[in-house]
Write a protein that binds this DNA or RNA. Structure first.
Length: 180
DNA sequence: CGCATTTGACCCGCGC
DNA sequence: GCGCGGGTCAAATGCG
């Protein structure tokens, strides 16, 4: 997990925009990536809230419990609510990009198209239901795709410097995939 | 001892 | 209806 450093040469000046998008993604919109081939910095906000704006929250209002529970707890009250998901790809040697929040891993699955497994994380902050999944691309194993779902309702637990540090560890590679 | 990770089982949606 | 792929839960285990 912790073998950072020694990778890239701080080539991004766009760290600001990234952190911005990550933290304040409430007003989602589609970022257009002009081309798929070369590395454009863009963010993909995938958001298909079918009128349920509450789904967006996790904001201070914290959670009216409209979560999609499946499995045992599910009562059959399953709507097709999609939460906004934000995916981005980064070039990094490590899978775990520490963005300043505390994550607990809760799952790990092999993905069909990928040789690499996908890891599922959940924010450990109480009341915070933000999830993220991390997956390495088969095509480029140097690229890690991280998908965030939901938004944090609390401040970052670590310093922002750290986040910047992370950004220095990776190159924002490009193109955001539309999920869902 | 408390918390995070691991790992297998379980569930659900979807396509055939 | 069944199988597959994806997502989550929870018990066991590990680690600080």
């Amino acid at each position: 997990m912790e073998k950072f450093q020694g990778f890239l040469p701080t080539s991004l000046s766009s760290s600001t925009s990234l952190s911005l998008n990550l933290t304040s993604s409430l007003g989602y919109s589609e970022f257009e990536c002009g081309k798929d081939n070369d590395g454009i910095l863009g963010l993909m906000a995938d958001t298909e809230v079918g009128g349920a704006k509450n789904e967006n929250n996790s904001l201070v209002g914290t959670t009216t419990e409209s979560e999609v529970k499946m499995g045992k707890t599910k009562k059959g009250e399953n709507k097709k609510i999609r939460k906004p998901r934000y995916a981005f790809q980064t070039r990094s040697q490590v899978d775990i990009l520490d963005d300043g929040y505390r994550w607990r891993k809760y799952g790990h699955k092999a993905v069909k198209n990928s040789k690499f497994p996908r890891s599922y994380y959940r924010c450990t902050h109480q009341g915070c239901k933000v999830k993220k999944q991390v997956q390495r691309l088969t095509k480029d194993e140097g690229i890690v795709e991280t998908t965030y779902e939901g938004m944090h309702s609390h401040p970052i637990q670590k310093t922002n410097d750290n986040f910047e540090h992370i950004l220095n560890q990776m190159q924002i590679y490009t193109s955001f995939k539309s999920i869902i």
